[in-house]
């Protein structure tokens, strides 16, 4: 997917640049952008290190486990198909909490474990269960307590108040999350597990890469 987008942006850019007579600006942009990419990355370093350091303390202190325990009742509503004490429930909570705290590195392996456990509960191995859909929707609409990368990027860009967007991000992502939960709950009864419809879409999706 990104192969095509990257190719298209560059090629369209060069062609439009030639047509607009802005070749020298385009050439300048190539050089400046690559330089600016590294400068931005260096600018990210401080906040990112601070953040991963603090999160390591959170993990070692058992805070993730603590939150996981506290949200168990919510899990019952969201994932009614998971039996009590099944490892799928634990893995899902840990993944979502890791996402919530912005621990990207920890979240993905936990998420893979969660979907593997969900697959064990799945009677129809090539079709998603309601629980899988809900889990992935929550993953794509997860609330991030502190959006560290964005704060770092804002501060690298010289923002006067890099953290001012935390509150607005909370409001927007809670809205996204709620809409996702409601949509997943309602739509699940329209897309029955047995139907083989929408095949083409899934096949295309399967080939998509970052």
């Amino acid at each position: 997917m990104l192969n095509y987008i990257w190719f298209a942006m560059l090629i369209i850019g060069f062609v439009v640049g030639i047509m607009n007579g802005r070749v020298s600006e385009v050439t300048q942009a190539v050089v400046d952008s690559s330089k600016s990419a590294v400068e931005i990355s260096i600018g990210l370093l401080g906040v990112m290190c601070l953040w991963t350091g603090l999160m390591e303390v959170a993990e070692k202190s058992g805070i993730i486990r603590g939150i996981a325990k506290a949200v168990r009742p919510v899990m019952k509503f969201l994932f009614p198909g998971i039996p009590k004490e099944h490892p799928a429930g634990g893995a899902i909570v840990m993944n979502l909490v890791a996402n919530f705290l912005g621990l990207g590195n920890a979240a993905t392996p936990l998420g893979i474990k969660a979907i593997n456990e969900l697959q064990k509960l799945n009677p129809n191995k090539d079709t998603a269960t309601n629980e899988m859909s809900m889990f992935l929707v929550l993953n794509t609409a997860c609330i991030q307590f502190i959006p560290a990368t964005i704060i770092a990027l804002r501060s690298a860009a010289g923002s006067k108040n890099p953290t001012e967007i935390i509150g607005t991000i909370w409001v927007a992502s809670i809205s996204a999350c709620m809409a996702g939960i409601i949509a997943a709950k309602i739509l699940s009864s329209f897309f029955k597990a047995k139907s083989g419809a929408k095949k083409g879409l899934e096949n295309r999706l399967g080939r998509r890469k970052a």
């Binding site: 859909s133 739509l187 139907s195």
Partner: peptide
């Protein structure tokens, strides 16, 4: 998983 059902729509 091949049949993702309503996942993409909900997301």
């Amino acid at each position: 998983i091949k049949n993702i059902r309503h996942t993409l729509a909900a997301a």
